[in-house]
Amino acid sequence: MPQPVSPAGTVKDSKYRRLLKRMWFYRFYYLLALPGILYFIIFHYIPMFGIVIAFKDISPFGGVVGIIEAPWVGLKHFNRFFNSIFFWDVIENTVVISGLKIIFGFPAPIVFALMLNEVTRLKFKRFVQTVSYLPHFISWVVTTGLVTALLATSGGLVTEILNNMTGERWTFLTNPDQFRGILTLSHVWKTVGWSSILYLAAMAAIDPALYEAAAIDGANRFQMARYITIPSIAFVITILFIFEIGNLLDAGFEQILLLYSPAVYSVSDIIDTYVYREGLLGLKYSFAAAVGLFKGVMAFLFLIAANTLANRLGQPGLW
């Protein structure tokens, strides 16, 4: 005789038990994932409540109570940012500088990795790899110091050589036409080696039999790179490209802050430097939070667009 329990309850109970059973079975996997989950909850999800700061007028010195008690001001801080006469300038600068870094900085490590992949002398390859990784470990403070030492209008090594060779006065760091180029070049120099690691790792996983077969078919090195290496690492390229697009509004705060001056504000003042001056130094934390939220939403939209595009082009995206 069947027991008199509700069918729904039975199903629910059995589902719940099955879930618990499954979790218990995979308990060590869950345990492994726990620190990561806690990290995201504590450092990424709980702080999201801070978004309310963007819709309030807070004093930075009131602590959590100050945030709770501060008056709601709606979209005041967003309006202020959108109505700033520099709004379109900082958006343009951010997108253009970031775009330049993607255009030149994104393919550079791929090309570099492809070139390294062709090097057969292992010692030389390792030496080049090590040297190319070094700039990654140099802070932007030191890097911009090097850039200034090379390109300062007075006494810069490169500037002085060009001055003497051309008889003209070169002004790299104060010339709006050249400043973005310097930002892009120094970014590529600093990141090219380190960014190539993932591509090299992906290349290491390619089955050598493919190259052997291609060689038997008469393919040269360029053809092997074009028809075997690049297609084999395409998924890594796609995923990293989506990440790059997601970071489109992060144009390199530290680098620009350390190199720019009023003479080149027009081509270098990005969202982050604008917020730094207005928000952090000017004690307008609500304004800084509003612009930060705007940036976050835009980055999210860019990420979705890039992922959709990747899917439509037949590449595996992030989801």
């Binding site: 109505n83 009023p262 027009s266 001056r277």
Partner: peptide, 19 residues
Amino acid sequence: PTLGDITRLLDEQTILFIT
């Protein structure tokens, strides 16, 4: 609220005119 914008204009543009 636009004082930061005005300050930036003053800092930036006077130098651009001078140079």
